[in-house]
Each structure stands twice: as C-alpha cells, then as structure tokens.
C-alpha cells in the first residue's frame, strides 16, 4: 500500500518548499511529487554514496575505521573537545534549530569557535 504524506517541507535548499507529497511504501520512500530534482534526490536517497549507520573511530588517520558504539564515539569526541585549546564547531546548516541550540551550548561551555556555512 502506498501512503501519501502531504505538505512535507523539503530539507534541501533555503527555499524550504512546503508543498511536497512523499509516497511511502512499507516504511520506505518510493517517490515524490512537486519536488525539484535536488529535493527528489534528497528524499530518494540517490546520492550514490555510503550511508553510515554505526559510529566509526580511528586513532591515526592513516588507519582504517573501526566500528564502535554511540557511547564510546561520543565519549571520545567529548574528550577531544575538552582537551583541545581552540576547537572549532562548524557546519550546522543541515540540522534542526533544536539540535543547533544544543551544539551552541556545548561550544559556549568549552570555549569553542562556533561557525556555520554562512561564513563561506
């Protein structure tokens, strides 16, 4: 059964078109309506790239990644940030405002530089 989800806001560019219809079958997106090609690709997950579903970690950048769990990955990330002198938190433009707020609070706590893609 194909279910149609109406009035979906497109999470690709700054236009945030809010008239998309997404076709969902068995919990998977099978098609879109009204979306432009870029928005369609975002929903259909076309990027042709690898989706990570588990955190990865490595000591040396020349080594291969090892799979790990969220607890250890976040713990190690937190340790790197706490021990650093001038950390930079960069990006933020493809996450929700709620998540941005949490990240900015982290930046304030550790004395980081917090910057987003508007900088370039």
């Amino acid at each position: 059964m194909v279910k149609v989800v109406k009035n979906v806001v497109c999470p690709f560019c700054g236009c945030l078109c809010d008239d998309l219809e997404i076709l969902v079958e068995d919990g998977h997106i099978v098609g879109t309506k009204n979306a432009c090609r870029i928005g369609h690709a975002k929903f259909m997950h076309f990027e042709g790239s690898v989706r990570y579903t588990e955190p990865l970690i490595r000591e040396d950048k020349k080594e291969d990644f090892k799979k790990t769990d969220y607890d250890r990955a976040i713990e190690e990330a937190a340790r790197l940030l706490v021990e650093s002198k001038l950390p930079v938190l960069y990006g933020f433009s493809s996450i929700s405002c709620e998540a941005q707020r949490e990240a900015i609070m982290i930046g304030e706590r550790i004395g980081a530089v917090v910057d987003n893609t508007a900088t370039i």
Binding site: C10, P11, F12, C13, G14, L16, L86, F92, S93, S94, I95, S96, C97, Q100, R101, I104, G107, E108, I110, G111, A112, V113, V114, D115, N116, T117, A118, T119
Partner: peptide
Amino acid sequence: PMRGHYNVNGFNQVMSWLTGYPYAVDFSRG
C-alpha cells in the same frame, strides 16, 4: 542571501538570540 542548505538561516537566528551575533562566534575568552 540565497541560502544553500535548508537551515543556514536557522543557525543564524538561533545564534543571534543566544549570543547576539549570527555566525563565526568565538567563545574562547568566556
């Protein structure tokens, strides 16, 4: 500005109401 990602403006809004500045905010001096 023509925002590339969907929530570039959102970050600038959130950052502005938390710190008074839109982006490139340095907290290193506290």
